[in-house]
Computed example of a mutant assay.
Amino acid sequence: MSEPMGRFIRTPHKRSTDTGTHEPIEELTRVALSKPVETEDGVLPAGSMGTVVGVYRSGAAYEVEFAKPFHTIATVMPDAIRKRWP
């Protein structure tokens, strides 16, 4: 006899990082770098602001687009970004 399927609700979960746990950041969220990040185009300094354009594995890494100090898209680990409040 099989049991009835329960209702599945997808809820955000905290991911473990080197600096602890954090809530996953959604696409199109404004973020700021908490430490410098090296890209193919150069090094983005801490404090650089960008927009999340992709989320990998529920927040294991993020694809972030930056306009300043130069335009680039970088893969950023969760311990290198924080949400930017308006």
Rank of each mutant, 00 (worst) to 15 (best):
P36K: 10
A80V: 06
H22V: 14
T11H: 11
M5R: 03
L28C: 05
R15K: 15
K35W: 05
I73W: 05
E40H: 07
P78G: 05
P86Q: 10
E3C: 07
G54K: 04
E3V: 07
A46H: 05
L44G: 00
V76L: 03
R7I: 08
P78F: 01
V76H: 06
E23A: 12
R7K: 09
G20V: 02
P78E: 06
P86S: 11
A80M: 12
V64Y: 00
Y62M: 07
A80H: 08
K68H: 15
D41H: 04
R84D: 12
T72G: 05
E27G: 02
G47V: 00
R82W: 08
A67Q: 00
R7V: 09
P36H: 08
T75Y: 11
Y62R: 08
E3N: 13
V64M: 02
E26C: 13
L44M: 01
S58E: 06
Y56F: 09
L33Q: 01
T39G: 00
V53W: 02
P4A: 01
V53K: 06
V37D: 02
T21P: 04
M1H: 10
M77Q: 05
R84A: 13
H22L: 13
E63M: 13
A67P: 00
R15D: 07
A46T: 03
S58G: 06
A67M: 00
E23G: 11
L33W: 06
W85V: 13
T17W: 01
T72F: 01
L33R: 00
H71G: 03
Y62Q: 10
A46D: 02
G59R: 13
E23I: 11
K14P: 12
V43G: 10
P12W: 04
P86A: 11
T29A: 11
V31R: 00
E23D: 15
F70P: 05
P36G: 02
K68L: 14
M77V: 05
V31N: 01
R15G: 12
H13L: 13
V37P: 05
G42V: 11
K83V: 15
I9Q: 14
I81P: 02
L28R: 08
M77P: 02
E3H: 12
P4E: 04
P36W: 04
M77N: 09
G50P: 01
T72K: 01
M5I: 06
P78C: 04
R84Y: 15
G47P: 02
H13P: 07
F66M: 06
R10W: 12
P86I: 04
P4G: 00
M49A: 12
M77F: 08
